[in-house]
Amino acid sequence: MSAIGAVFSHCREAKRAAFIPYLTGGDPDLETSAELLEALAAGGADIIEVGVPFSDPIADGPINQRAAVRALEAGATLPGILEMIARIRARVDTPMVLFSYFNPLLAHGLQTVAEQAAISGVDGILCVDLPPDEDDGGFRDFCRSAGVDSIYLLAPTSTPERVKLVAAASSGFVYYVSRTGVTGVQKDLSRELQREVKKIRRRIDLPLAVGFGISSPEQVAAVGKVADGVVVGSALVRVVEENRGRSDLPELLAAEVERLAAPLLRSRRR
């Protein structure tokens, strides 16, 4: 079983959902970013998602767009981010998932990316604009050979056939996008979300993590009741944005992770 699979089975035994925070790699710079990823682990992350900044992030809202701009202006690259992950691997054993757009992966060569990611200690790769239908370059196979999980997305618009296709292509877990829309924070989750998640969970064997727009402990609690994992991104990226430059940013961030993840530790599922 992969490290990611082990986390989910551990959480299942503990009758709770996994907490999966996201940050953009290299934001505000690579050195600080390394400290921030460690802070996520210290705060209680079960799995960490690391974004690869891209110049044209069509699936991201303003908060993550600005993070990508900061990271790119500070010189972040895919090799730089992998190096950073390799460096903190000595101290952090929380599984890590790369969250990328396809073009930066293509530019470095799909086989090279899969192999270098594995060497750096990356456990899974999620490519937001590479649906399994288009994976003719064999990226999935390269990842499998390297021992890296391939995570694909489902969305409220996915048809039953696509649910099947995505589940068959994925390993580690499947990522359900909570709404039609881009990443960001939102006040209210859609009313159908819980029902949708339950429905999809019945159809697939892999764990199902839910993300996009989840930004408060109440929302984490609500999603945690029905999903195997809860992803929080923009809400944490915003903490980085608003407090960058402060020397206690890692502590602030760890505290925020603790606050957001707390409901999962408290409310055990039946």
Binding site: L130, T157, V166
Partner: peptide
């Protein structure tokens, strides 16, 4: 060519 888009747009 192809359809390299987020899942949300695949079915539409």
């Amino acid at each position: 060519g192809g359809r390299f888009v987020p899942e949300t747009l695949m079915a539409p």
